[in-house]
């Protein structure tokens, strides 16, 4: 079953076409990876899906059960709440002056805010806020345990080591209880051990019922865990399929090695 359908998506910045007529689908309960050389338009595509850019044309539809929701029509902040799509960033964006636990509570803002009667009851100490906060802390604790950050819950987020910050960002995104999690290069800058721990984390998130959309340069991660791969180059989709198919796709290989098909075809064919 499909969770995300991107149809004929084009994103132009003035004269530059960053994403050109890209269509693909991501299936529910799968890990879909988007790969491509630098500047291929992966992050632009992500920013369109998560509402940071409004696409020039095309549509992005997310499917919840029998309901279809056009993400490109929603205002940016509704994408997390109504669209139930969460994301992380290529350059980590944590609330570094707040504690790890606070970061995870901010992620549950909408539910908590509703329980305070939009602030009024909360100030007076009325309403179900206490219960809601207890529940929120439980959820946060669950994801802290999953990401191995439980001991650091009260430390400032900015004081965590790099790898832990990456995991915290994933935990924070998961605290919004998304159906689709978009990860922008989660393995960037991780050492091999951290990167294999990340694989396990992502697989456990998938097992929990959240579908994943992944931008990644680390082919070790991509080939090992993704169910489906979409390859972009210069803003257009050049391939789409299972990891094994992508691995032997000559167009993909030549795009990655920067070879021109006509001139250096033998070399491109020789490196599967």
């Amino acid at each position: 079953m499909t969770i995300l359908t991107v149809a004929n998506l084009t994103m132009r910045f003035g004269g530059l076409t960053a994403v050109n007529d890209v269509s693909f689908t991501a299936r529910q309960g799968e890990i879909t990876a988007i790969i491509g050389p630098n500047g291929a338009g992966k992050t632009t595509l992500f920013n369109c899906i998560t509402g940071f850019y409004k696409p020039s044309s095309g549509s992005i539809t997310v499917v919840h059960g029998s309901k279809n929701l056009r993400l490109d029509k929603l205002p940016g902040h509704s994408i997390a709440r109504k669209g139930r799509v969460a994301r992380t960033f290529q350059n980590i964006r944590l609330f570094s002056g707040m504690s790890v636990l606070e970061n995870l509570l901010v992620a549950q803002h909408n539910r908590l805010q509703a329980s305070t009667g939009f602030g009024v009851l909360g100030i007076l100490g009325l309403g179900g806020y206490r219960a809601a906060e207890r529940h929120a802390i439980e959820l946060a604790t669950h994801w802290l345990a999953q990401t191995g950050l439980l001991e650091r819950a009260d430390d400032p987020a900015g004081a965590l080591p790099y790898g832990a910050q990456r995991r915290l960002e994933i935990a924070r995104a998961m605290c919004t209880e998304p159906l689709l999690l978009c990860l922008d290069e989660p393995a960037a800058g991780l050492n091999p051990r951290e990167s294999s721990a990340l694989n396990d984390l992502l697989l456990s998130i998938r097992a929990g019922g959240t579908s994943l959309l992944l931008i990644e340069h680390d082919m070790g991660v991509v080939m090992k865990i993704s169910d489906h791969i979409v390859v972009l180059d210069h803003g257009t989709k050049i391939a789409d399929g299972k990891p094994a198919d992508i691995r032997s796709n000559t167009v993909v290989i030549s795009a990655y090695l920067g070879e021109d098909d006509e001139d250096d075809a033998p070399l491109a064919g020789a490196t599967p």
Binding site: F52, H77, S78, A80, F95, L105, T116, G119
Partner: peptide
């Protein structure tokens, strides 16, 4: 002091820390 411990106050502080991240978490900036 009450608001600081409430979601609203936390959202204010989160806004000070990183507005983009707030938006990605569904906070109406």
């Amino acid at each position: 002091l009450r608001l600081r411990r409430q979601p609203l106050g936390r959202a204010w502080e989160a806004l000070r820390e990183d507005e983009t991240a707030c938006r990605s978490l569904g906070i109406n900036v």
